[in-house]
């Protein structure tokens, strides 16, 4: 083999390996499970690193403390405050009941407000700052991004409910005696059993906000303004609750997503009465399906020009 041929062969080999390197470097990469899930993890990070999220959770945690202090002061003072939710009277006997009281107070207003803020802003906020276009050209995939947003919304529901429940438990334990719990049905169960029920109730409360997350996500895909989406979602929660208060609207009330929210108190009977809770969960599933699909249909076909 002549020298020229050798060097030619070497050159062509070098050429080939360089070409291979280029292909390896820039060619089509496979999608991996870890890569796919990275966005979900990152979305959680993003949600909970935000100052806004921390403030919302902080407010939710302060609420049971306020209730606890007010109840304590009221029972210390001589005159009896009439009426009030049935849980509040029990709270003075057992601090654990503050968990149920706080959840019952937070569920109609405070919890949905915070969830509305987080879910409403999820897509619209990114559209407003322009980060949405960079996520989509990354490419996040529209369905995947929406799923990540929805998951983060659900986790926020859990965190929000936990913030109320844990703060309530701590406050209740500090201000009132803990011990055997007398249920709404009159039966008495041990503290450990009662704690389990508290966890169950908190779980049900968190899941019953799922429908709202889907609604917020849908509203969020409609607009390019985070504030507008948050306001619309929170406004919707309030409107629906007002509608739910009209007996004249009996025909539609069972279909309002807030209608069965307070049915969690049925779990504080012996035996547990699941009827309302199951209806609630079914209704939430229906809302997730309907508004989730609507959000998907809207988001996957929308022009992103922000």
């Amino acid at each position: 083999m002549s020298r020229a041929e050798t060097s030619h062969a070497a050159a062509s080999r070098a050429e080939t390996s360089r070409a291979e390197a280029t292909v390896l470097r820039t060619g089509r990469r496979p999608q991996t499970a870890a890569g796919f899930l990275a966005l979900f993890r990152n979305e959680l990070h993003l949600t909970f690193r935000r100052l806004r999220t921390k403030v919302l959770l902080g407010i939710l945690a302060v609420l049971p403390v306020l209730i606890g202090v007010v109840v304590k002061l009221n029972t210390d003072s001589p005159h009896e405050g009439g009426g009030g939710p049935s849980f509040i009277a029990q709270t003075t006997q057992n601090g654990l009941f503050l968990v149920f009281t706080a959840l019952a107070v937070a569920l109609p207003v405070f919890l949905p407000m915070t969830v509305g803020v987080v879910a409403g802003d999820s897509v619209a906020g990114e559209a407003a700052t322009g980060t949405l276009r960079y996520l989509l050209v990354a490419p996040a995939g529209r369905t995947r991004l929406l799923a990540a947003k929805f998951t983060a919304g659900l986790v926020f529901c859990l965190a929000a409910t936990a913030a109320v429940a844990v703060a309530a438990l701590a406050t209740g334990a500090a201000l009132f005696p803990l011990g055997e719990v007398t249920l709404l049905s009159g039966d008495t169960i041990g503290l450990a059993d009662a704690l389990l029920r508290a966890v169950l109730v908190a779980g049900v409360v968190a899941v019953s906000l799922a429908g709202l997350v889907a609604i917020g996500l849908f509203v969020s895909t409609l607009t390019g303004s985070g504030i507008a989406a948050m306001a619309a979602t929170v406004g919707l929660v309030i409107t629906v609750q007002i509608l739910d208060a009209f007996p004249q609207l009996d025909a539609i009330r069972p279909f309002l997503f807030t209608h069965y929210w307070l049915s969690f108190s049925d779990l504080l009977r012996e035996p547990m009465y699941w009827d309302g809770v199951l209806k609630d969960l079914g209704l939430q599933a229906a809302y997730v399906a309907v508004f989730g699909s609507a959000a998907w249909a809207r988001f996957t076909s929308r022009d992103i020009s922000a």
């Binding site: 890569g35 990275a38 993003l46 276009r133 990354a138 996040a140």
Partner: peptide
Amino acid sequence: ALYGFLSGRDNLVRFDAADPTAD
């Protein structure tokens, strides 16, 4: 377009996480 509340580094981490083919 960036996330103002994240550091420059974390902004890049987020955009990279958005790509399902990124290791």
